[in-house]
Amino acid sequence: KLLGKQNPVYLMTDKTTPYKDATTYNNYYEFGTDKAEPAQNAGTLKTRPWTVSIEGEVKKPMTLDLDSLMKLAPMEQRIYRLRCVEGWSMVIPWEGYSLSALIKKVEPTGNAKYIEFTTLADKKQMPGLNSPVLEWPYVEGLRMDEAMHPLALLTFGMYGEVLPNQNGAPVRMVVPWKYGFKSAKSIVKIRFLKEQPKTAWNLTAANEYGFYSNVNPTVDHPRWSQATERRIGEDGFFTKKRKTLMFNGYNDVASLYTGMDLKKYF
């Protein structure tokens, strides 16, 4: 059980995705490439004891165990849309707090321009690591101002429970205005960097997955359109796909990108 105080700013009229769908239809390649596999295979993940080390361009590098990390700021429940780069979406209540709380605590130096998240990569716990689909460990990153945005949520639970393993337990990011893969799961390391980090999907196919990967209906994936999406658990067979919104509907973040050509920096 892990119930955060509901934050009324992030309530939503959209229907919440059924818990069963959100926990059995996952992209978590460390546990297999099929969407049903994470739920089947992630039982082997040991989420305690767990530590997250914070390194790089910070005045106070530290290693935090899960309990101290969870107590760092008050836990909130926020309902966010989740838009996968594959063209489907969900609506999920998450429990966590703004990543900015953690960033402020470790005091980044003036050199810190980017933040990098590293997912656990342990072959004993994660059968998918034997497959060469990606370079392990899984690495994701944000620009500093993106990471400081209050929407960027350091997340420990969903639906009032601690995160199920297949959803990135015990601690993950949720960055709702970007495609789902930008939100690293099962984080063991957070680094503050001068340079833009080399992120997993960008390394694999830079022409398909940009560093920013903001949800953007006007920039198609080379192999499918991003203009529409199918809402999992809500849309039936005969429902037309819904229109994808710029920044997944989170227009607050637009100011982060003023003057940037989002077709070039997709």
């Binding site: 069963k20 059995t24 239809y25 969407k35 049903a36 489907w88 658990g233 067979f237």
Partner: peptide, 13 residues
């Protein structure tokens, strides 16, 4: 499967 709702979270896929 379509009738007994066993096509998973994304039936069309």
């Amino acid at each position: 499967y379509a009738f007994i709702d066993q096509l998973g979270a994304n039936p069309i896929e």
